[in-house]
Amino acid sequence: MKKTRFLVALLAGLAVSLSGVVQSSAADKTTLVVMIRGLDNPYHANYAAGAKALGQALGLPVDVLSSEGNSQKQFADLKAEIAKTGGNMVVNVDPNEAPDVVPIAKMLEDAGVYWVNWWNKPDDVKLQTYPHWVGHIAFDAVEQGYFNATELFKTFKTPNKGSIIAIQGMLSNNAAIGRFQGLQKALKEFPDVKLVQWEAADWDTNKAYEVTKQLLAAHPDVDGVWSANDNMAIGIVAALKEAGLAGKVLTCGTDGIPDAFDAIEAGSQASTEFMDSRYQAQLGLTMALAAKDGKLDVKAISPEHRAFLIAGTHVTRDNVKTFVAETVKVMPTYDLKDFYSKWVAAIK
């Protein structure tokens, strides 16, 4: 009996509080939203920095959402954001994994929110089905793997001749797969370079360190260690240093985190490709904002410009100093008038 009474009281309380709800009064200013995968690495943190800078310039509020690698949280947080702003927002998403894109697309379509997507997208999902999906953009991962591999091969005692080991990212990740394809393309081009063994280190510095250490014990005479990103390169450099190979055997990376630039300068890393997530955030948000303000007619964009690859910046020992001073340390003013200034290819 008591329980029943309690539940009735509870329901009544809920009903009262529900009746007090005022229907969504939309925020008057458009909120700029970036959804990223985590807050604990510089690449993603730069997304936030870029978005905040843009928000300041335009006088618009910025919200940074982080999924912590959890797809359900990603959806839930985005929905919460839609609720919060009443749908008056534009979104720049770095989806957790490719399959997350469809529900996000549906959710934002229903809410009438213009948005831009980065990196991951199921192949057979067409943007044309979703009028509010302004663009899908990615860096060219195959090219990244290829470029870094060729730079690494150059550093061998006999350039382009020798053996390497490779440390992959998370096997389940598109960027990791693309970069590894790039490596294989390079290996085909330079038949004198042998890949003796590869392991996956899940983008994790510590794991890369451990795996490299073990591989170096098995193959002490390699000429280079190919790495799929800079985070792992840090671990690889530490392992090489321990083996007394720092500066003799080099590694490479992608992303362009500060430590990678230091390593390139110090001569323990051959190259990296800088992907400016500040630019990513600003480009995506500006495109979505333009669509929302009617300045960009989404329907009129050609398919090649709805889904496309852009180029990153190659960083090697030759340009690292100036690049860091001019681009990394200061927030550059990006050319946001032409959305397609870095366009290299369409995504099929």
Partner: peptide
């Protein structure tokens, strides 16, 4: 030890 072994510190140190 983890931090010094790697020469870098992040909040990801204890992951997994």
């Amino acid at each position: 030890l983890l931090v010094n072994r790697m020469g870098t510190a992040t909040s990801r140190a204890g992951l997994n």
